[in-house]
Amino acid sequence: MADLTKGPRGAKPRKILSRRNIMLYGILFVISVYYLLPLYVMVVTSLKGMPEIRLGNIFSPPVEITFQPWVKAWAQACTGLNCDGLSRGFWNSVQITVPSVILSIAVAAVNGYALSLWKFRGAETFFAILIVGAFIPYQVMIYPIVIILREIGIYGTLWGLVLVHTIFGMPILTLLFRNYFSSVPEELFKAARVDGAGFWGIFLRIMVPMSLPIFVVALILQVTGIWNDFLFGVIYTRPDTYPMTVQLNNIVNSVQGVKEYNVNMAATLLTGLVPLIIYFISGKLFVRGIAAGAVKG
């Protein structure tokens, strides 16, 4: 008879180098390298001087680290007649992004709140029409908007672009907020009404404080979208109010003189920095908000 006391006991031992783990982490590693390589090339190139770049070893780390390309991209690179680098575009972009983000989120939050909790006659139709807006290609509307902006006298100004961004952000953001507020228990809304809170009272004191995740989602979507926007920026502004993306394009695609790859790389990295920072700060909340908004349609 077998010795029953020698049977397995306690926690089951786990093999770290199992076939499954090797496959899993191997694939993850390869994919990470694949996605990180271009970023690596950009960073090292931006830190090299031009003579070193001309040697052609794009993967080799810089022998002599120089921040000169970054300085030049930020403060000296020329676009057209202006030679004050990306800094001008950066501040333009800030001036476009901040009011656009605040305005579009504020309007969309109120929209979503009204559409989900204060259902009025025709609310569904109104919402459906708004959503259709998300599926119409932007290009169709470019010229009509130019005319509208010209007629109301804000064509070529920052405020014109802010208005355009607010309008184009509306469908998707309203959808986002409507779905989020639909998932708020209805009894909470009823309780607030019995407690005498009105439309704005319930919105500002009950709904907004419990909606941080969805506001973060909207913030990330809008900051990224508006900061990275090129098309509207180039159409609805003038050269001295060009956003950073347009200026970046003008620097990188300039046909005069020698192509300064290190400056281009630094300029591109600088331009991408803002959305990246926003994402790293609030990424966790972003995922939570997306999940919460998806619960109920």
């Binding site: 909470l188 309780a191 009404r193 019995v194 407690d195 005498g196």
Partner: peptide
């Protein structure tokens, strides 16, 4: 509802999650 002189208690309690108990009681 607030003008009718009623108080109401709900199945899901419907307490305002971001307020303290004191805040919930004094909101109305």
């Amino acid at each position: 509802p607030s003008e009718r002189g009623i108080g109401m208690v709900f199945q899901s309690y419907a307490l305002y999650p971001q307020m303290t108990v004191r805040g919930n009681l004094s909101f109305g």
